[in-house]
Simulated assay, not measured.
Amino acid sequence: MLEVAILDIIPGKETDFEAAFAVASAIIANSPGYISHQLQRCVENESRYLLLVNWQTLEAHTIGFRSSPEYREWASLLHHFYSPFPTVEHYQLVLEPGS
């Protein structure tokens, strides 16, 4: 299951966001059902980031991580950087090259 979030950061706060995200990365990486994640910065809009998180199941993210005390710590580190608050969607693999 792939979690996709477009993160629009308050302009001028990108460096602070990236530093906070480096700390927050350890929080999500230790969550049950977590597989991997990556954060990418938009070339055309330097205040926009793409967060991709691979989870074993949808519930590992929506129930396990989001209802955990660790999520509250994640939120306190990151949520104040967002404007507007991101929409998070989940995707299922349909076709993989070579299959």
Rank of each mutant, 00 (worst) to 15 (best):
E59L: 06
F17T: 12
E3G: 04
G64T: 09
E96D: 06
E89T: 14
G64D: 02
Y82D: 05
E89Q: 06
F21Q: 12
F85P: 05
Y34D: 01
I63N: 11
F65N: 07
P32T: 05
E70R: 14
L51A: 08
L39E: 02
E3A: 09
A60F: 01
E44W: 01
R41I: 14
P97V: 04
I35F: 02
L51M: 08
I63D: 13
P32A: 03
S31Y: 04
V88M: 06
A5L: 00
S25T: 09
P84K: 05
P86L: 09
F85Y: 13
F85S: 13
Y71C: 10
Q40N: 15
A20M: 08
S67C: 02
S99Y: 03
Y49F: 15
Q38V: 14
M1G: 07
E96G: 00
P69E: 15
L58H: 06
A26R: 12
L78T: 08
L50K: 00
N45K: 13
E89F: 01
P84E: 03
H90F: 03
W55N: 10
S76G: 03
G12P: 05
Q92S: 12
G98H: 09
Y71L: 09
E46H: 13
V88I: 14
P32L: 02
E96V: 01
W74T: 04
A29E: 11
E46W: 09
E46N: 12
G98A: 08
T87E: 10
L77C: 08
D16Q: 14
H79I: 06
L52V: 11
R41D: 09
S76C: 07
I10C: 13
A60Y: 02
G98L: 04
W74Q: 05
A29P: 00
N45D: 13
L39S: 00
E3I: 05
I28T: 06
A19V: 08
Q38D: 12
P32W: 00
R66M: 12
Y71A: 05
H37S: 06
A75D: 12
G33R: 03
L78A: 01
I63L: 12
G33W: 04
L50V: 12
Q92A: 10
T87W: 00
G98K: 10
P84T: 03
W74F: 15
P97M: 01
I63Q: 11
N30L: 03
S83H: 14
A29Y: 03
L51W: 00
S47C: 10
G64K: 01
D16H: 14
L2W: 10
S25L: 02
Q40P: 01
